[in-house]
Design a protein around this nucleic acid. Structure first.
Length: 494
RNA sequence: GGUACCAUGGCCGAGUGGCUAGGCAUGGGUCUGCAAAACCUAGUACAGCGGUUCGAAUCCGCUUGGUACCUCCA
């Protein structure tokens, strides 16, 4: 029996504003679409939070035994620098500035994105489609929407008619906006816009002669609008209605609102059952944003080369830090907060390591079954990873107590305990011990340290404190900490 | 200006009507040649004001502060 049959997951649905029991369209299968990055620059840490959040969700659904098709796109065309008529395609602009092909820009930053996500130990999606790979489908859906009367052509560009759509449907239901209010509060109109109404948005833009990214269409050479790719690719790979659509909170309006409008206009029904939004990562209390300079790149964090943090942090530490907050809450990134997370993460990781040293007895004094069910209850409640982590720290207490002999565990329970701990730490939270990975390359260091520790032990046995303290202090200065424990001395790298 | 959301102990961060979240930091302790590490242990917080209730961090109203979206943004 699959785990999902005994674990009912509740999901906070942005569309209804309520936590709802998750019921997939097809039993045992989940279709999930997440809006991916626009690859015109390096992804910053804020971008990564969204993808790490959905990676955790993907992992938990898989852990429950669901067969998940996870589609996350790469936006490599159509994302404009602004909404004005002269708005330029972001990729195109970057290519123009650097005098390279747009596809070189796309390639460079797609590779960077994949590298960073791999460092964060995120699983690749099942399908990672690109906008440029689906121009034909986008043109087809535009024809469809034109046929239905929800779009109009103006000088070789096609715009979605929001007013018309709103007569038959409800524009703004996801973001809680009313079209009348939006019209009433429109800022000063852009002079001589092609749009009939400022709320209309582009499905297809005519390419000016100098525009490098262009494709032929029934309306002349042009390029697709940003919102359209997601409608096309999600419906192509997941169907006209699918289970979960995710993305960053900042995409809720207008991007996701427009996706709903396009889907309903083209297919006549709502595209998504559960809308999920990952909240923003802030830096110094402000949203991370490339344009304002208030952002940090993952690489800068891993190497320590940045102006915000006092040291470097491993990818798993950053991931753990993110998992300590609920995906739906705003999370502030700071030196203090990540330092605290690092210590907690190390303690958790160390405790898992010593699980192998525990000796089981006949009967358990700890209630592993009940602990385990608390872990699942946390995750079933809208993927509440902070509660799960609190439970994992309860487990840390159990582990120490069993090791000390103040609590006992049976062979059967210990096996289940280990399996469950590993499942949540490794499979669901996607954590791993980065330090083990580095010391594997450092086998010679292990040997050298063994010798040094032995020499120091001799000095201590001779009460030669001058020598033993010199070894300890100078190693510490070099970034190696010696830990004197009951069973001898071990070391760890800073 | 419009629309949302948020305000929790020194810091981070869960929790939506009665029961100790958790992590980090701090105090005390165990261990240790000393120290570090490790482990044990302690600490009753919910922006302000008013209301509902037997009872509110949790519900309602007002006030203050903050953030996000309304233009591109994960």
């Amino acid at each position: 029996m699959a785990l999902y049959q005994e674990n009912e997951v509740k999901i906070y649905n942005s569309l209804t504003g309520k936590k709802e029991a998750f019921k997939p369209i097809l039993p045992g299968r989940v279709g999930m679409y997440v809006c991916g990055p626009t690859v015109y620059s390096n992804v910053h840490l804020g971008n990564c939070r969204t993808f790490i959040s959905f990676d955790m969700i993907f992992r938990y659904l898989k852990h429950l035994g669901y067969n998940v098709r996870y589609v996350r796109n790469i936006t490599d065309a159509g994302h404009l620098t602004d909404d004005a008529d002269q708005g330029e395609d972001k990729i195109s602009k970057k290519a123009r500035l650097e005098k390279i092909e747009p596809m070189e820009v796309v390639q460079q930053y797609t590779l960077d994105f994949h590298k960073v996500m791999a460092q964060f130990n995120a699983h690749p999606p099942s399908i990672e489609p690109t906008a440029t790979g689906h121009i034909v489908e986008q043109i087809e859906i535009i024809k469809n929407i034109l046929d239905k009367g929800y779009a109009y052509e103006k000088n070789g560009s096609i715009y979605f008619n929001v007013l018309k759509f709103n007569q038959d449907h409800e524009y703004g239901k996801l973001s809680g906006r009313k079209l009348e209010d939006m019209i009433a509060n429109t800022r000063e109109l852009t002079a001589q816009s092609e749009k009939e109404n400022p709320q209309d948005f582009a499905l297809w833009k005519k390419a000016s002669p100098e525009h490098i990214m262009r494709w032929p269409s029934p309306w002349g050479d042009g390029f697709p609008g940003w919102h359209l790719e997601c409608t096309v690719m999600s419906s192509k790979y997941l169907g006209e209605t699918f289970d979960i659509h995710g993305g960053g909170m900042d995409l809720k309006f207008p991007h996701h609102e427009c996706e709903i409008a396009q889907g309903e206009a083209a297919h006549g029904h709502s595209p998504v059952n559960y809308w999920m939004h990952a909240n923003m990562l802030t830096l110094n209390g402000q949203k991370m944003s490339k344009s304002t300079g208030n952002s940090i790149l993952p690489q800068e964090l891993f190497t320590g080369e940045n102006d915000f943090m006092e040291k470097a942090f491993a990818p798993s530490v950053v991931r753990f830090f993110m998992m300590q907050a609920h995906y739906g809450s705003i999370l502030d990134f700071s030196n203090e907060a990540i330092l605290a997370a690092e210590k907690g993460f190390n303690r958790l990781t160390e405790a898992i390591k010593i699980m192998d040293q525990l000796s089981p007895v006949d009967r358990s004094s700890v209630d592993i079954a009940s602990w385990k069910s608390s872990c699942y209850a946390a995750m079933n409640d809208d993927f509440n990873t902070p509660i799960l982590i609190a439970e994992l720290f309860n487990a840390v207490k159990y582990i120490h107590a069993i090791k000390e002999g103040t609590e006992q565990i049976s062979t059967q329970d210990l096996k289940e305990f280990k399996t469950c701990m590993q499942a949540f730490y490794t499979d669901v939270l996607g954590l791993k011990n980065d330090q083990d990975a580095t010391t594997q390359d450092g086998k010679p260091l292990d040997g050298a340290m063994k010798l040094i520790i032995e020499l120091r032990a001799q000095a201590r046995a001779n009460k030669d404190w001058a020598t033993s303290d010199k070894i300890r202090d100078e190693l510490a200065a070099a970034g190696i900490q010696l830990k004197d424990g009951a069973e001898g001395t071990s070391y760890s790298l800073e």
